[in-house]
Amino acid sequence: MSAKATRAGRSTGGERTITLEISRFRPEQDSEPVFETFDVPLRDDWAVLDGLNHVKDQLDGTLSFRWSCRMGVCGSCGMTVNGKPRLTCGTFLTEFGAGPVRIEPLKGFPVIRDLVVEIDDFLAKLSHVKPWLIREGEELPLTTEYAQTPEQLEAYKQYSMCINCMLCYSACPVYVLNPDFLGPAAIALAQRYNLDSRDQGDRLDLLNTDEGVWGCTFVGECTSACPKHVDPAEAIQRYKVTAAMRSVLPWARR
């Protein structure tokens, strides 16, 4: 990888600036990613994403990246910032002092272009764990809810907070080395339904496999990376206990 000459912004005269080293991959011209550097204004309330938008709007319209809500809930703008998977809308430029800030696509995923990665595999994994409420027998009429106490809600609530940003996959060395691993978010999502008092499904066959929970070696980085405190590492270890109990004691509950 080589760095090109820095391109300064037209509106940065006199203002404090910070250098962004942005990984570029243009499949028509690059055989592998190269770094390009840009100077952007360094303002106290600017997130890394604001810096990227400044580049896109004023310096180089060809830079490609995904973003949308810029309030940490749509899950689009995950990238590798100075080596760590982060939501760029919630990561402030001032965190990096004088800079530079190195921005790369999320590790562990094929790169389509610049900072945009392919996530089809991740979506297939989400679907794989049957992430919907499974009920047997008659459905209740639309005037009645399935009763669920606040305690029962609390039992799975944390695992329902995943925004599908994939930072946990990017942080997981198992996934990066073996893309067949079901991965943290998908297993946490399975647990979100497993632990929901309204769910009557059984996801043992999907999770109790080498590519499922047993693929996890418990590095714990998924939990450190998670911006929403879902704690996928916990979800996985808990299901290992469940799966082990059910294998030994066939009558054990899910």
Binding site: R66, S68, C69, M71, V73, C74, G75, S76, I119, L123, I163, N164
Partner: peptide, 10 residues
């Protein structure tokens, strides 16, 4: 966008 990125999310 992927459906779960839609603005309903906010």
């Amino acid at each position: 966008v992927y459906p779960m990125r839609s603005h309903t999310v906010s």
